[in-house]
Design a binder for these strands. Structure first.
Lengths: 159, 159
DNA sequence: TATTGTTATACTCTATAACTATA
DNA sequence: TATAGTTATAGAGTATAACAATA
């Protein structure tokens, strides 16, 4: 028998990743990355990133919300939200208006153009979801959504 | 009826995120973030990050593999792998040995200490998985794993 | 004193081009 | 000429401290 020291170790022809593959967290991360990559391509024609699209949807669905509320809903630190809101405002997709009753806060509202872009991107996003998850049965999709909610809630409580 | 202009729009008491919540990709990302946050805490006592743990596991399970092979398995660009391998080598968890038959490539092998740390961290990671996914039924876990594999494969083919 | 939004800063992860040494 | 590993660099995304204006 020949000794296998590090120096004469042959390189494996195929890399084994069984141990990682058995972890649900690992699969979750890879699936999430795959979806995000596809979503990024989906949103590119609208010049939106996932984070700007998320912000836009929340402003459209919650007219008048503050940046603090938006940051909390997106689970993003306030300082990091500033540049996102800056971008959406610069592109005239949302407006930033001082609230008369509390002049510290801004009320965020989508413009007509912002609402339109949100609708158009929303259609593309639904097609993207159908492309990725469409082959799963209705039952599998429901169970997947439930499992994901469970994981998210599990963490929330665990912190 | 009072007109609701942006200026006098009241702030919503509660932020609606139904539209995002209905997207499986959104749930996937949030679940993945939740798991990663918990995993980061789990690996902290071992002074490992998710990416260094992943690299260590693959080296332990594939003694002698090259950095290019490792980068491909981890889906990381080679330049970004260098600092990771540097760190593991500096901590004497792996060795980097020139391959005699091709002096361009390094053969990566885990040291005894590397194998031990990998085992210890592995136990903690299994506990972390149990903490997060343990409440799901065996059937739900299998279906989740299957759905995740489907999503990953779907993207692979779609590129 | 506390809160909203802001600036500055830093750290991680990621992506690309260009270099070196080997083949 | 092609490949393995490296360097330098730049871009996202994220996190914290400290500040001005306002409550």
């Amino acid at each position: 028998m020949k000794p296998q020291t590090a120096a004469n170790m042959p390189q494996p022809a195929q890399v084994r990743d069984d141990r990682l593959g058995g972890l649900l967290g690992y699969g979750l991360r890879r699936a999430s990355n795959a979806v995000q990559a596809d979503l990024a391509e989906t949103l590119k024609p609208f010049d939106l990133r996932m984070i700007t699209y998320t912000a836009l949807v929340l402003v459209v669905d919650n007219p008048g919300l503050s940046q603090t509320q938006l940051a909390a809903a997106m689970d993003v630190e306030r300082p990091n939200l500033v540049v996102i809101v800056d971008e959406l405002e610069r592109r005239d997709l949302i407006t930033r208006d001082r609230v008369p009753t509390d002049r510290r806060t801004y009320a965020l509202t989508a413009t007509l153009a912002g609402g339109r872009l949100c609708d158009q991107a929303g259609t593309a996003v639904r097609q993207h979801e159908a492309r990725i998850f469409g082959a799963l049965s209705e039952e599998a999709r429901i169970l997947l959504a439930e499992s994901l909610r469970h994981v998210i809630a599990r963490r929330k409580g665990g912190v």
